[in-house]
Each structure stands twice: as C-alpha cells, then as structure tokens.
Nucleic acid binder design. Sequence first.
DNA 1: AACTTGACGAGGG
DNA 2: CCCCTCGCCAAGT
Length: 119
Amino acid sequence: MLNVDEQSYREKVYEIVRQIPVGKIMTYGQIADILGEGYTARTVGYVMNAASTQKVPWQRVINSQGGCSTSKMTTPHNLQQSLLEEEGVIFKNEKCDVKTYRWTPEGYEEEDDQPNLFG
DNA sequence: AACTTGACGAGGG
DNA sequence: CCCCTCGCCAAGT
C-alpha cells in the first residue's frame, strides 16, 4: 500500500497522471492545483519532462492553451499530439479544446463557486 | 549558498 | 494572435 504522503515529489504527480482516462487530458496547472502543497504548473512540467520514461500516459498532460509543449522540443515533431489523436482527441491548428477534453479525478472536483446573482 | 533553467499560467499591451 | 513580464518552485551548475 502506497500512501500518497509516502510518495516522492514526482510520484505524487505520476499518481494523478496514471488516472487520466483514454481520450482525456489534464493541464499542468490543474495537476499542480490538485496537489497543492508546493506544487505549481512549472514544477509539474518539470516532473513531466522525465515522465516519458515512466509508466505514465504522459501524453495526456498538456498546457492550458490546449497545445503540446513538446511540439517544438526534444520529442519528434508532434508525437504527443499524434498519440492523443489516436485516443480520439481532435486537434485544430495544433491545439485541442481544453474545455471539452479536460478531466478531473473523482474526489478532486473543481470548485465551482458561482455567486447566487439571482438569490 | 547564489544564479540559471524549465513539457507552465495569468495579465497587459 | 504575438510578445513581454511576473510569479512559481525543483534541479542543475
């Protein structure tokens, strides 16, 4: 049994990434927000950099713009995008609709505090 | 221990 | 839409 609290900094990130279902995505900032305690979009991105060699669906983590930050980096052109397209994610101009594909792990539902304007 | 680098994000021009 | 600035925090030098 591995308690999240016993996991290393990176393992906590992997733990969430492993839960992302096929055809869905999460953003770095979203993951950082869920983990809270000292995590930021930037550090999550740092962790994901080394995730390509881990047992995690790293391709399902993209930036808040709906694009793959790996497009113009080390990885072959748009490997990440290709992998997501194979999962059913539709890309338009190298970007997908984050609103449509974003996923949130159960138990970490986004806080939707909408003021009761019409009380 | 100080400085620099990032698969980032929100804002402003 | 593109470019720049600031904030964020782990790792590498």
